[in-house]
């Protein structure tokens, strides 16, 4: 099952999105929050992200949801710390972080592959709310 990592500048945002996504997921679905800095401050930390990716992977790869700016840079930096095998099966979804995470988790819980999970997350960009 494809794992999902949530990278936000805020630990609370990442944890909160994880909680919401858990409601929609299969019991064995891995959803790991990588929000904020080690000291609890606002920011992103590539090492926290790389650890989260390792924890989220069960062999089928990991889709990563990001918020703004440095979340992308930190995640791309985190990729450099992964071993080559895992690096070949991680992907950032160009999607809104909350809607993308929930869509990704639903797709992943169906047992879909990484490309399908990322595509579904990115589809959340055009979800109409009203």
């Amino acid at each position: 099952m494809v794992g999902v990592v949530i990278v936000s500048h805020s630990q609370k945002v990442a944890e909160g999105i994880r909680e919401m996504a858990l409601q929609m997921s299969a019991p064995e679905q891995k959803i790991i929050a990588a929000g904020g800095m080690a000291d609890g401050g606002i920011g992103t930390d590539a090492f926290r992200v790389s650890e989260a990716i390792v924890s989220a992977d069960t062999g089928d790869g990991v889709a990563i949801m990001v918020d703004l700016g440095s979340a992308v840079l930190s995640t791309e930096t985190a990729f450099e710390f992964l071993d080559e095998e895992l690096r070949s099966k991680v992907q950032i979804a160009d999607a809104p972080i909350l809607e993308g995470a929930i869509s990704a988790v639903v797709e992943a819980s169906l047992g879909s592959n990484l490309a399908a999970v990322v595509a579904t997350a990115e589809g959340a960009r055009t979800l109409n709310k009203c």
Binding site: H9, M37, A38, G41, I42, G43, T44, D45, A46, F47, R48, G69, S70, L73, S74, E76, T77
Partner: peptide, 11 residues
């Protein structure tokens, strides 16, 4: 990388 927090950290 692990302590700056903003984009300047990874850069």
């Amino acid at each position: 990388i692990s302590s700056v927090g903003g984009a300047a950290g990874p850069l």
